[in-house]
Computed example of a mutant assay.
Amino acid sequence: MTNTSEPPHPALAGREEESAALTDAIRRLVAVATATTAPPDATLAAARELESVADALERHVPDPPLPKTMLHLSDDGRADLAGRMAYDAVIGRHNPMALPLEVAFEPPKALLRGTFTRPYEGPPGCVHGAVLAGAFDILCAAANFVAGVAGPTARLEIVYRRPTLLGEPCLFEGEVEARDGKRVRTVGRLLQRGRVTVEATGDFVHLDREDIARMAAQMME
């Protein structure tokens, strides 16, 4: 769900489409690099060409770097979570490492939808468990966000019921189950072919925006 009234991340001002194109190209490269059997000379030539591209882009990296998360945006559950976390490692639209998942809100639930491909493989033909754990962490964070109780993860328990297959659509569902002061209990599940493959339970600490900004500032010192 996109809220087009919100400004882009400051690092994307005037170059959002171009950054998305770069991200897509790198994601394609990752898929190819984990599958290619190119001969040594072609592999080395590609590596050298990519180093040259990295050198060119590195000249435009600010120091200090801009923040990854936009803390000033609205926190009412209607904001574009992926947009405010443009470089997030799990759902960032402009992070080539991010998982192939789209975020949506159906209050009180948060949803992730997508299909995992070969770069995310663990057991043969199945999604890596660590990848799924990362997806559940952001799923629960999104559920907390839509409930207005966002904050860091204190504990996350993952129960793998059955293998999650590559190439098959996935639906993650999460929602806040209970609150006790600043403590939040959030639950989630992953459905594939109508069956639950993974379940998760997480404990989180609710922090207001000022607390989060103060924590971020302390970590940067």
Rank of each mutant, 00 (worst) to 15 (best):
A110F: 02
P39Q: 13
L66P: 05
A46S: 11
A86E: 10
A56T: 11
H72Q: 14
L50G: 02
A86W: 14
E106V: 03
A42G: 02
V90L: 10
A46R: 01
P65D: 08
T37P: 00
A38D: 12
G83R: 02
S74D: 14
L101C: 12
R93H: 01
L99S: 09
L50Q: 04
A38W: 13
P100Y: 06
V30C: 09
V32N: 05
P100C: 07
A38C: 06
D63P: 00
E49C: 00
A33H: 05
A35L: 04
V30S: 04
V30W: 15
L44Y: 10
A38Y: 08
D88I: 05
L111W: 03
P67E: 08
R113M: 04
G77A: 13
E51C: 00
A46L: 14
A38F: 13
V30I: 13
V32S: 12
D80M: 06
A98M: 04
N95M: 11
N95D: 02
A45H: 05
A110N: 00
A35R: 10
L101D: 04
A86V: 14
P64F: 13
L99H: 07
H60M: 06
D80H: 10
A42E: 14
D76I: 07
D80A: 10
A82P: 08
N95V: 07
E106W: 03
A79W: 00
P39N: 15
R48G: 05
P67G: 12
P62M: 12
A42N: 04
V61Y: 03
P108N: 11
V61C: 08
H60V: 03
T69I: 15
M97T: 04
D63M: 06
V61L: 02
G77P: 11
A33T: 00
I91C: 03
D80S: 11
L71Q: 00
E102I: 04
D76G: 07
V103T: 07
P100H: 12
D80Q: 01
K109C: 05
E58Q: 11
P67F: 15
D76H: 09
I91R: 00
R48K: 12
R59T: 15
R93I: 02
L71T: 01
L101E: 07
A56M: 09
L73M: 14
P64E: 13
G77H: 13
D76Q: 09
H94C: 00
H94V: 00
A35I: 02
F105L: 08
A45E: 10
L57V: 06
